[in-house]
């Protein structure tokens, strides 16, 4: 019984921890809360590089969550306005989906370029294999060869 209570407690704690840092914020309605939650998932924490601001304990992530909350609840910003607000201050870096511009075109184009190269290589390999197969058919034994083979086999 004790073990069960202990396990339950641990699971409860773990579930809270797994959810990342918890802030206590008031929302006017569920829609605001839903937008807040989805927005903080979309911004990258500038200090911790590979975490979004929803999942980071860093003070700057807390500040940015508070800022997003303020913009959504008090200033009544639309999602795009919140994004450009943070982008104007922290640059493209805070957006997990970087815009397409002269500094980022390579990372947008590279996957398609690599896919294209891959398809090309695949095509060449296939063609090579087919040509090899054709060549193999060409060297199939003709009537004369078959007779020679037969005589060779029958010799002993």
């Amino acid at each position: 019984m004790r073990l069960m209570i202990f396990t339950t407690l641990m699971l409860a704690i773990a579930s809270v921890l797994a959810d990342g840092p918890v802030d206590i914020y008031q929302f006017d309605n569920d829609e605001q809360q839903r937008r807040y939650k989805s927005l903080i998932e979309e911004f990258r924490c500038p200090k911790c590089l590979n975490t979004n601001i929803a999942g980071s304990d860093a003070p700057i992530a807390q500040d940015l969550r508070r800022t997003v909350h303020r913009l959504v609840v008090e200033e009544d910003f639309a999602d795009d306005e919140v994004k450009s607000y943070l982008q104007a201050r922290y640059g493209d870096f805070v957006l997990y989906k970087p815009p397409f511009n002269e500094r980022t075109w390579l990372i947008w184009v590279a996957p398609f370029a690599i896919l294209f190269i891959g398809l090309f290589v695949l095509y060449r390999l296939q063609r090579g294999a087919r040509m090899a197969a054709d060549a193999a058919t060409d060297t199939a034994l003709n009537e004369e060869d078959r007779e020679r083979l037969q005589t060779l086999l029958e010799r002993d």
């Binding site: 500038p46 700057i60 500040d63 940015l64």
Partner: peptide, 13 residues
């Protein structure tokens, strides 16, 4: 005190 000016300045540390 609360880091609000920091956010406007894009301060992250």
């Amino acid at each position: 005190l609360d880091g609000a000016i920091g956010v406007d300045l894009g301060v992250y540390g």
